[in-house]
Simulated scan of single mutants.
Amino acid sequence: MSDTTIRRPIRWNSAQDTNVGMVREVNEDSIISLPDIQLWAVADGMGGYEAGNVASNMIVKSLTEITNKSSLNEFVDSVEDSLIDVNHRILEYADIMLDGRTLGSTIVTLAIKGHVGICLWAGDSRLYRFRNNNFIQLSRDHSQVEELVQQGFITPEEAEYHPDSNVITRAIGASPEVYIDINVFSVQLGDTFLLCSDGLYNMVSKDDISNTLSTLPLQDAVDSLIKQALDNGANDNVSVILVKGEPDAAYSTQVILQE
């Protein structure tokens, strides 16, 4: 007896946008979408007028130089090496061009190989996954408030309104040594991933984000999320990337199972 099963590889479609917001004069966020190698990233610069923009741009430019790797480990290593290298280059730039002034940027990346997803990040830009109407955060903020939550001093609800919620403990370019956290997880057909800067999640509730992802196509959802942030005041730059796994009919393969 034989059964025929069609296995369809997943095609990862993405949409993205970034906006200066309602208060800032300069957009210090930078975003990158590299669907050919299945790599996406949001960088949120800091350091004041133009300096943060320099840092975030240096990060995404470094990531564009990554080439596709057949091995998952090689791919992860290349992303991590890129971030470590640009950390040193940002420090050199600050020393030479800004008289040692501190500048830097958060970073959150999503890389996908087969049915495995990898998040590498530093700072408080976030990666979320929307699956079967469940919306969960896959990264963990490198911030003083998150440390208080992990130590049990405050609740996650209290953290949302804490006066130090914008104080981060890790960033690219902030110190000679940078530590990149990595989360590895499974991906499946129908998953939607959201990469964003704090300008989104500080302005739009998780429920509203979840409802948007469940009802709108990718680009419409990106536009709606940014509009919601703007309508709510958007006191920071707002960056959004959505990545969704859909059937790739063009590359379907047939597997014959024998019993």
Rank of each mutant, 00 (worst) to 15 (best):
L91N: 05
L91C: 01
E92V: 04
A94T: 02
A94N: 05
D95E: 15
D95P: 00
D99E: 14
T102V: 14
L103Q: 02
G104C: 07
S105Y: 03
S105W: 04
T106M: 02
T106D: 05
V108E: 04
T109V: 10
T109L: 05
A111S: 15
A111G: 15
I112H: 05
K113T: 09
G114A: 08
G117M: 02
G117S: 05
I118A: 11
I118G: 00
W121G: 07
W121H: 15
A122M: 04
A122L: 02
D124C: 09
S125Y: 04
R126S: 09
L127H: 03
L127Y: 07
Y128M: 07
Y128R: 03
F130G: 00
F130D: 00
N132L: 08
N133S: 14
N133I: 03
N133E: 14
N133R: 13
N134L: 06
F135V: 03
F135G: 02
Q137S: 01
S139F: 10
R140N: 13
R140H: 14
D141G: 08
H142M: 11
S143A: 09
S143I: 07
S143C: 08
S143M: 06
V145R: 01
E147Y: 06
L148W: 13
Q150I: 13
Q150T: 05
Q150N: 13
G152V: 09
G152L: 09
F153S: 12
I154M: 06
T155H: 05
T155S: 15
P156Y: 12
E157D: 15
E157T: 14
E157C: 03
E157G: 05
E158C: 09
E158H: 06
A159M: 03
A159F: 04
E160H: 04
Y161E: 14
H162D: 14
P163N: 07
P163T: 08
D164V: 01
S165E: 02
V167Q: 10
I168A: 11
I168N: 08
T169A: 12
R170G: 02
R170C: 15
A171H: 06
I172A: 12
G173L: 09
S175G: 03
S175M: 12
P176E: 10
P176S: 12
V178A: 08
V178G: 10
V178S: 10
Y179Q: 13
Y179F: 14
Y179K: 14
I180S: 01
I180K: 01
D181C: 07
D181T: 14
I182K: 15
V184T: 15
F185A: 12
F185N: 07
F185V: 13
V187Q: 05
V187G: 11
Q188G: 13
L189F: 06
G190I: 09
G190F: 12
T192A: 03
L194I: 08
L194N: 06
L194Q: 04
C196L: 11
C196K: 04
C196T: 13
S197C: 11
S197M: 10
D198K: 01
D198T: 04
D198P: 01
G199Q: 02
L200D: 01
Y201V: 00
M203I: 01
S205K: 03
S205I: 02
D207G: 01
D207T: 13
D208G: 00
S210V: 03
S210T: 14
N211L: 11
S214M: 02
S214H: 06
S214E: 15
T215A: 15
T215P: 00
T215F: 03
T215G: 02
